[in-house]
Computed example of a mutant assay.
Amino acid sequence: MMGAGWIDLTGRRAVVTGGTKGVGGAVVAALVGAGARVVTGARSRPDDLPETVGFFAADLMSAEGCADFARSAETELGGVDILVNVLGGSSAPGGGFAALSDEIWMKEINQNLMAAVRIDRALVPGMLERGSGVVIHVTSIQHELPLPESTIGYAAAKGALATYSKALSKELAPKGVRVVRVSPGWVETEASVRLAQRLAEQAGTDYEGGKRIIMDSLGGIPLGRPAQPQEVADLVAFLVSPRAASITGTEVVIDGGTVPTV
């Protein structure tokens, strides 16, 4: 983990959505390690969340849940300097476009686009009042490299998030608020480990074989491995820090070289 000597966020107030596991959990730990005060939320508090991290139970898939969480977080911190929208994911079934009902589409959109839109709408005005702040939107390389078997809705929602993020950056940058997208490829989270194990069992191979199946489905990862959550978190910690003060409106890809285009 980066030390505060390299990234110093002492006194900064941060909100992280989806911060109880996977990439979000690593982001919370990295920001706390760099000295920030951090608040996160989910439907229930995990047992391993550090006591120093503020937590509010909320359903961020709903407009009401987002509003309640944002209000509680802002009150707890007395204002927000850093907002990292990590919340995302997909539970859509396989089977291509025909398997996706309106209900599934709306779930993908609420989870991967509207949660960030709603939280931004609640917390960014305070940043604008102070004339400073950083917003990170965690997108995905799948908005460039969608997998039609099961992630059409997820990829489309992340594509919308990327476009929204770019527009937001143009509006906010002249007012002192930076907006940056972080676009991971395959990250070896708890969920992806379970996926690799399931694929390995189906194919009659071991965990490394399951990982190879996933990498092959992506067209290969030149680096030869998935990213680790901590690697994504360290990138986020840098981007929200003063060391990245000139970075806004762009997308930083962390995918081991997966996307094959310029």
Score class of each variant (00 low, 15 high):
A203Q: 15
R198D: 14
V180F: 05
S165F: 03
S140Q: 06
V134K: 03
D120S: 14
G176D: 07
E190T: 08
A200S: 10
G176T: 08
V182W: 01
A196D: 02
G131H: 06
E144Y: 10
E129M: 14
P125F: 11
A200Q: 06
A157G: 03
V124Q: 00
L123N: 04
M215C: 07
W186A: 01
P184E: 00
S192R: 05
A122M: 12
H137G: 07
T205C: 09
P148V: 13
E129G: 11
M127A: 08
T189S: 04
W186P: 01
T151S: 13
G209T: 09
V124I: 11
L172W: 03
A162K: 03
G133C: 08
D206A: 10
L147A: 07
T205P: 02
V135F: 04
G159W: 00
V187R: 00
G209D: 08
G126F: 05
S150I: 10
R212P: 07
H143T: 08
A155H: 02
G153Y: 01
K211D: 07
A156V: 13
V187W: 01
P146R: 03
Q202L: 13
S217G: 15
S192A: 14
S150G: 13
G133Y: 03
T139V: 12
E171Y: 13
L172N: 02
G126I: 04
G176Y: 08
Y207A: 09
Y154T: 07
T151F: 11
E188T: 12
E129I: 14
G185T: 02
A173N: 15
G126Y: 05
I141A: 00
A122K: 06
A156G: 11
S165P: 04
A200F: 05
L168Q: 08
Q197G: 13
V193H: 05
S165G: 12
V124T: 04
V179W: 01
T139E: 02
E208N: 14
K175A: 14
A167P: 09
E149D: 13
L161E: 01
G133D: 01
K211R: 12
L199K: 02
L161R: 01
A156R: 05
A162Q: 05
G131Y: 01
L161D: 00
H143R: 12
A157L: 02
L195D: 05
P125E: 15
H143C: 12
S217I: 07
S140L: 05
L172E: 00
M215I: 09
A203L: 13
V179C: 02
L218R: 03
G126R: 03
G131K: 08
T151Y: 10
T163W: 13
A162R: 06
